[in-house]
Design a protein around this nucleic acid. Structure first.
Lengths: 142, 142
DNA sequence: AATTTAATGAAAAATACTATCAATTATGAA
DNA sequence: TTCATAATTGATAGTATTTTTCATTAAATT
């Protein structure tokens, strides 16, 4: 039931290669811990977990950024306001985060265009996009 | 046209006093720079601006946190993904941030309950709330 | 195999944030 | 007002986080 379950490693490798980057064993190791955990990790949790696999701290930082840039990691905020990264599919979507276990699921994109029009009228802004994050209790924690 | 324009200093003072805190000249200085700038400040911008007014770094950190807790500062993300703080009224609301000048305006709360119900059905989550931030171009930058 | 390019990781550097504590300032009671 | 109490400040030290550097290693290309 992972967000990115069934994502072929090949797709990720291709995405890296497309921009001249290499899908190294270290980068694969980083991806694997996220792919395997729907609650994701804070940076410090990830560096700790990956240190056990002999992946250096700088590499973790660099890889998390790369995965973010490719759209395979998204940033969310847990109950404590701490920043976590969770596996996701590329593209715009919204995240729904459990306040108890931090499990995150991706919501299919919801149409806020009506809202954006309303806000444009109210404020005079040309609204171009939004970030939306939901929080609540996941089925297991309910 | 500031978000918090016309907010009486008195109200802020009362809010501080209500919890046993004092509205000191330093805290007032912090508040004033935010009140006067709809684009808000990053922490480092704020510490720099306030150092010129002889407000110490620790006090800036402490005061920003206090103003946040009281609801008079809200955190937004600018075009570079950097965290800024902008003056706001207490309570739940959404922020609309200009990608060019970082000017932020507060949107009256918009009803996402229909969306939340839909997401509950789709995911099984008990949705309790959300964070929503819009970005676009403000009238001046359009 | 030789060459070129990218990635790694250890360490240093830079940045961000928090805690400590003596001195100062405000508040309230007498 | 004066004294006692409590909160605040800011300098500094301390901790944590993130980025950069660079020599080395590994991968891709020729």
């Amino acid at each position: 039931m992972n967000i990115a379950e069934g994502l072929p490693q090949q797709e990720l490798k291709n995405q890296f290669n497309k921009t001249g980057l290499r899908f190294t064993p270290q980068r694969e190791a980083v991806w694997r811990i996220f792919e395997g955990n729907p609650s994701g990790y804070t940076i410090s949790q990830a560096t700790a977990a990956l240190a056990a696999q002999k992946v250096g701290q700088a590499t973790v930082y660099r890889t998390i950024r790369a995965l973010q840039d490719l759209g395979y990691l998204k940033k969310v905020h847990d109950q404590n306001g701490e920043r976590r990264f969770v596996a996701s599919r590329p593209g715009h979507s919204h995240m729904l985060v459990c306040r108890s276990c931090s499990r995150a699921v991706e919501c299919s994109d919801c149409d806020l265009s009506v809202l954006e029009k309303l806000i444009s009228r109210q404020t005079g802004f040309a609204v171009e996009g939004h970030h939306l994050e939901f929080f609540g209790l996941c089925p297991e924690c309910s």
